[in-house]
Design a protein around this nucleic acid. Structure first.
Lengths: 175, 175
DNA sequence: TCTGATCTATATCAGACCAATATAGGGCTA
DNA sequence: TAGCCCTATATTGGTCTGATATAGATCAGA
């Protein structure tokens, strides 16, 4: 699932600038789904344009930087649909937090507690963002938002229920 | 949480070759925590060696390719510990599956059903792998394994409970 | 017995991607 | 009026992945 495909997908929902494509996923409760940086979005849009999968309309605004509004073309739609019919790449989760917990016995208990607090706060933030826009969606959107709610909810419950088990280790005892 | 730090962390548990470092995380139920390719592990180990954070012992085996067994040094331990005291990078989840579900209204219902089946199977596989090595662990290991169990369990339950909501969309109706 | 697959083990490279930075004007707030 | 954040595009250095190459071992099955 490369950035080109992601851009195509977002553009099926309507025209957007590169900037808006990034913002859409940062703000709309989809951070846990996909994400991409400007450094990959802008080159991707250029290449998609060259290949005729998207079209650009340049809006030279007064007193504002130019906007390049991208729209998906018919062949872009075809290519995107085809990519959804091919086998999907597997999910990828990278969790520096979980990795750090593997070494909790090497850390002062206060640091472990603080890491868990921060992680719970992070999950609660995600939950809040998901809850914050529960109107006007397709079935697919509601479904994916529900997935996020489920994961973060379950994670918070697990951390609250089990944190004592690693906070109360005596530092040097293990290993 | 770059590959260098990940390698250091794994080496705190004992000496290992580059190959073993990769295997450890693929087979031991930690795929959802961190992962790295050979293309990043080997260069990382070389650089760590140059910097004196790990040491190498070359085992020239007969009838076998050489093994380079890496061990963490005292300064390696210090650097690793320090990295756990700095603020951790945020988790990163990329889910091509969830992304695809956002466009379920563009797909034939059978394809959606098939994607969900495959995803559930994937989650069950993870669960099986976690269950498959529940002996001889530190508190941290048990805790992280429990995190995985929680997430995959909750995800499977959610998918089973809510799949009907996107499988029964009539393709062109939405949007 | 021989063929092919799979495993151990290291290494490299093209291409993808991220984080940071540059540029540039606008609005908002203290 | 200084400082900060927002819109908006773009580039660069460096990291990381996925694929491929090499090479002998082991093992299953035809």
């Amino acid at each position: 699932m490369d950035v080109r495909t992601i851009c195509l997908g977002i553009l099926t929902r309507g025209p957007a600038t590169g900037y808006e494509i990034k913002k859409l996923f940062e703000e709309d409760g989809y951070q846990h789904v996909v994400e991409a940086s400007f450094g990959s979005i802008y080159p991707a849009l250029n290449r998609l344009t060259e290949e005729g999968l998207v079209s650009v309309r340049e809006e030279a605004q007064e007193k504002r930087p130019d906007r390049k509004v991208y729209s998906i073309t018919a062949s872009g739609r075809t290519v995107f649909l085809a990519s959804l019919l091919k086998p999907l790449p597997e999910d990828r989760h990278r969790s520096p937090f979980a990795f750090a917990m593997l070494f909790s016995h090497l850390l002062p208990p206060e640091r472990v507690a603080q890491m868990i607090d921060a992680y719970i706060a992070q999950c609660e933030g995600q939950l809040a963002q998901i809850a914050g826009h529960s109107e006007s969606q397709t079935d697919g959107e509601r479904f994916v938002l529900g997935m996020g709610q489920t994961i973060y909810g379950a994670m918070i419950a697990y951390l609250r229920a089990h944190r004592a088990e690693i906070e109360h280790q005596q530092p040097a005892a293990a290993e």
